[in-house]
Design a protein around this nucleic acid. Structure first.
Length: 700
RNA sequence: GGGCCCGUAGCUCAGCGGUUAGAGCAGGGGACUCAUAAUCCCUUGGUCGCGUGUUCGAAUCACGCCGGGCCUACCA
């Protein structure tokens, strides 16, 4: 990729809705956008990251009512919370505005006038259910009633989940409003529409030939919308509605999806005003098509709004069209949709209380490939990958070599490293191309391969032996360590967009702040090296467990277990065994035994007195436990890696007290700690009694 | 109801018409002891969801199934 001149790049993420808090799913988008922007800045381009809260709509209005306060009060609080969450994850906007701002209102008016002037606005009556108690018009999903075809109760206003019939909400038997419980009535209201069909040929051209959209997205639009006349877009909502009133249509408001994307423009305008920049330069088109690049990052659910309505609005308003709309998939946790009952609906703020945010940034980066597939946050995988890659490979490189340079600093001339640094420098182009394309996963793979080479180099040159050899090997030791530290520094340059805080810390130890991608091309020589200190703590299973526990919400009714799908009349469903448990399949129930058999095993509550790692053992921790009184046992338990010895001390566990002592490689084990494990979940789970149990109590 | 995406080693994924299908992690064996027990070397492991077709040749293309996920349903 050849880039001589500095580019001017405006980047946006979708505006988060002020109706809820930021969660890990949102962060897939904000983190990848932030990485993109940081990368561009590091390359020396002028990049600005623009976002805002999306604040309008019925949902906000209803929530504010429910909480007994004004909408502006609600959205102010929410904005503060959003900003704190983003900042905690190092998501750094150049400007973060609100769609409920005077600037946005003014721009909405201007763009609206453009649509009017272009003859794109039409008026038509719409029949709609109205809730006389709440005093609002009802969307289909706010109405429930009996299915007019099969009679099933409690069906939504559009279709029946039981028999699949579709209908108008007015057809429901005994309809009720889910807002007030009142009986809705049909009312007619005038709505304004944007006649998108008039922009059809422009949209054909832009979606298919501008290069702004990935092929699957362009094909999707071509196949599903552009192949037939485009429908009119209902753009007004009658009062009451929280939003901006339409200037030439009193008593009606712009639909939230009209003013939300205009928030990108408004937020830019606010940024420009604060930074002595010309807003027109960024959003008014010029002959030089690429003078300014606008990139929108969005989730696949809002593709439609950003690839049809939005470009049509921009075109009609005479504003600059995006150079790219980058569509990504959703997040699943442990392979499933985020779920409150499983504790996997994880808020950003919850994560921040327990786990390092940069580890999540790295993990996401290692998963995001620029496509629209969903990405999965498998929590066991997360722990393994974050620790192995970030701590084991990257940080460890500094940890194992920097100490030899605190006295001498880096070698005055960069030593012969067999071409390693040059190869790493050459990797820069491929990594940059991956960042540019949004294929962060590929970038991370290349970086980790370079880290592997660097660690192999250290192994091969064995600096620890040089350190023992004394003065005659001092120069070589300095050289070997200087090479390793330079390779580390090079990796940190490449990882700066992903882990900015780590890069900053690393810069404090050696070489200073990383402010240019090209820093990866030239090795540091002769500069001082600070005493090493741990740059990154490992993620522990306990931290993840704490996140899940804090996110756990008891379900009233688990939506998955109600008759969500499938036919309610299907009686075979009841006799079919529940989906087979992986645990039971892998380990079938044991043969029957008698109570006497069971009594042979003496299970006792025990208190952990000491716990320590067994350095040579891969799975064992050495525990001493008290069975009450002076009775203690030494037990080697195969739980290393799953439990931090420090947190075990003082804990009550269950042990097999009469197990024959067994001589192990590391000593005599005088019992066994009872723990659960099996298919379906990695880990070894200790069994603990309820509070109040005393050491020595027998389990029966 | 409409639509989209995915199904490749135990796990997460790369490969997307052409030599005996790859990586990381996990598993097994060995080395090392500088390092947050991290690191390095070797190694086990796959009828590429199933079926039919197109082709000299298919994980890769087409069609149909089956499984999983997601988005929609005054807004598509």
């Amino acid at each position: 990729m050849h880039e001589s001149a500095s580019r001017r790049i405006l980047v946006t993420s979708a505006l988060p809705y002020a109706n809820g808090h930021i969660h890990l799913g949102h962060l897939v988008e904000y983190i990848q956008t932030d990485i993109f922007v940081r990368f561009q800045k590091l390359r020396g381009h002028q990049a600005i990251y623009i976002c805002a809260d999306d604040t309008h709509g019925t949902a906000i209005m209803l929530r504010a009512q429910a909480e007994g306060r004004s909408e502006t009060d609600l959205i102010a609080d929410m904005q503060q919370a959003h900003r704190a969450d983003f900042s905690g994850f190092h998501v750094a906007f150049d400007h973060y505005g609100s769609t409920n701002s005077p600037t946005n209102q003014r721009l909405c008016g201007e763009i609206w006038q453009s649509l009017r002037d272009a003859g794109l606005v039409a008026s038509r009556d719409v029949q709609q259910l109205f809730d006389p108690v709440a005093g609002v018009f009802l969307a289909d999903r706010f109405v429930k009633g009996g299915c007019p075809r099969c009679g099933a109760a409690d069906q939504y206003g559009d279709s029946c989940e039981a028999c699949g019939a579709t209908y108008s909400p007015a057809d429901l038997v005994d309809p009720t409003s889910t807002l007030s419980g009142g009986v809705p009535e049909v009312r007619s209201a005038e709505h304004l529409f944007v006649e998108l069909e008039k922009m059809h040929s422009f949209l054909d051209e832009w979606t298919q030939r501008s290069g702004s959209l990935a092929a699957p997205i362009a094909n999707y639009l071509a196949g599903h919308f552009l192949g037939e006349p485009l429908r009119d877009w209902d753009i007004s909502r009658p009062a009451p509605y929280f939003g901006f009133e339409i200037p030439d249509f009193p008593g009606h408001y712009w639909y939230v999806w009209f003013d939300a994307p205009i928030g990108y423009v408004a937020s830019t305008a606010e940024w420009a005003a604060e930074n002595n920049e010309s807003f027109e330069q960024w959003w008014k088109p010029t002959d030089d098509h690429d003078a300014i690049e606008i990139h929108h990052f969005i989730g696949k659910d809002i593709t439609y709004f950003h690839t049809l309505f939005w470009p049509a609005m921009l075109k009609a308003a005479g504003l600059r069209l995006p150079k790219s709309v980058r569509v990504h998939g959703f997040l699943t946790v442990n392979g499933q949709k985020m779920s409150k009952s499983r504790g996997t609906f994880i808020l950003a703020s919850t994560w921040l209380e327990h786990v390092d945010p940069e580890m999540l940034r790295y993990f996401y980066a290692s998963k995001i490939s620029g496509g629209i597939d969903d990405i999965d946050l498998d929590l066991d995988d997360f722990i393994a990958k974050a620790n192995a890659d970030v701590v084991g490979k990257i940080v460890n490189l500094a940890s194992r070599t920097m100490r030899w340079l605190t006295e001498s600093g880096l070698s005055a001339a960069y030593p012969d490293d067999g071409g390693l640094f040059a190869r790493g420098a050459a990797d820069g182009d491929e990594i940059a191309a991956a960042y540019e394309a949004g294929d962060l996963a590929r970038g991370m793979r290349v970086i980790m391969q370079a880290a592997d080479r660097a660690n192999a180099f250290v192994d091969e040159r064995q600096p620890w032996k040089l350190a023992k050899a004394g003065d005659e090997a001092a120069a070589e030791l300095q050289d070997v360590a200087s090479i390793a530290v330079n390779l580390f520094r090079q990796l940190m340059v490449y990882l700066t967009p992903v882990m900015p805080a780590l890069a900053e810390e690393a810069g404090r130890l050696v070489g200073g702040s990383i402010d240019s991608w090209d820093a990866a091309k030239t090795p540091l020589v002769g500069c001082p090296v600070s005493p090493f200190r741990a740059l990154k703590a490992r993620v522990t299973p306990e931290q993840i467990a704490a996140v899940l526990a804090a996110s756990q919400q008891p379900t009233e009714t688990d939506p998955a277990s109600t008759n969500a799908k499938g036919t309610s009349m299907d009686d075979t469903a009841d006799t079919t065994p529940v989906s087979s448990s992986p645990t039971l399949t892998a380990e079938p129930l044991a043969e029957e035994c008698t109570i006497d058999d069971f009594a042979k095993v003496d299970l006792r509550v025990a208190k952990v007195l000491t716990a320590e790692e067994v350095p040579e053992a891969r799975k064992l921790l050495k525990l001493t436990v008290s069975l009450g009184g002076d009775e203690t046992r030494t037990i080697f338990a195969g739980i290393k890696g799953y439990h931090d010895p420090a947190t075990l001390v003082g804990r009550h566990v269950v042990v097999v007290a009469n197990l024959a002592p067994r001589k192990m490689k590391f000593g005599l084990s005088e019992g066994m700690v009872v723990a659960a494990s099996g298919e379906g979940a990695d880990g070894v789970y200790l069994i603990s009694p309820e509070d109040g149990a005393l050491p020595g109590m027998r389990l029966r």
